[in-house]
Design a protein around this nucleic acid. Structure first.
Lengths: 145, 145
DNA sequence: ACTGAAATCGCTGAATT
DNA sequence: AATTCAGCGATTTCAGT
């Protein structure tokens, strides 16, 4: 577990709000030189606290307007790595969470419409050792970032 | 819904893999000038397809090693906006999804340890009109980005 | 819409305290 | 660990096609 001071946390918070904020801007805000800020951000990357940078996309604007969570139940013998392996090959699956207890996994999926969702769920039920699904349709969402 | 050609989709994919990729790199890859790539990315931002840039963080490295989903059920009279409003003031809540049917909402939470999780769940049950919770502990996860 | 060039601004590494 | 400075590369704007 990495040792971070207040300045590191401030830099992380700034980058969460805008991952393209420049070192100069951040330096001015925390009261350090540009090179010092760069050294800290480099260190956060090297220590694995920062794993990458990415863009945030409005999927609805791209025509993928439906979001859902699918709870999966598997046959008792199915190893976890097989659950993840079979689920993440489905392009509509955005994230896979393996769970303790019931259900065995939770999938976050994004689809164009309800027909499309039906098709994805059918595919999941056919593949592997899925013994049951429960689908939760997302009506709205809020995210901290 | 925005009109995007193949080049726009390629640029989006590149930025999802690395949100700090330079215009020069992307220009070389898609075979356009730097100025043309910048114009396209600017347009994706202006049209709302790109909503922002952010950093990806390994929360376990920061000592927030436990992740869970909490299904919430509310009294029938509770308006959706009140569900979201009360949940997103809890700092441990990373995301709020309001759902069709049962449960009424799904919260993604991150905590330091199980005591901390217990405390967060107790707080949720006390606040507002929550009539029941079910907590799903995350053992492992995979995400497309 | 894209190109190419010019000006500005930010990034990076080395030397220093 | 932070600062300063110099060299380099990226961003941004604009005229031209």
């Amino acid at each position: 577990m990495a040792e971070l001071d207040d300045t590191d946390h401030r830099l992380l918070r700034m980058l969460r709000e805008d991952g393209r904020r420049t070192f100069s801007e951040m330096a001015a805000e925390v009261g350090l030189s540009v090179a010092a800020v760069k050294r800290r951000v480099d260190r956060l990357r090297d220590s694995g606290v920062i794993t990458g940078f990415t863009v945030q996309v409005d999927h609805a604007k791209l025509g993928w307007g439906i979001e859902a969570f699918v709870e999966l139940r598997y046959a008792g013998t199915t190893p976890v790595r097989e659950i993840v392996a079979s689920a993440h090959t489905v392009p509509e699956v955005q994230a896979v969470f393996t769970m303790a207890g019931d259900p065995d996994a939770l999938l976050q999926v994004r689809v164009r419409d309800l027909d499309h969702l039906q098709h994805v769920i059918d595919g999941l039920r056919r593949s592997g050792h899925v013994t049951g699904t429960k689908t939760l349709m997302v009506l709205g969402s809020w995210s901290r970032t």
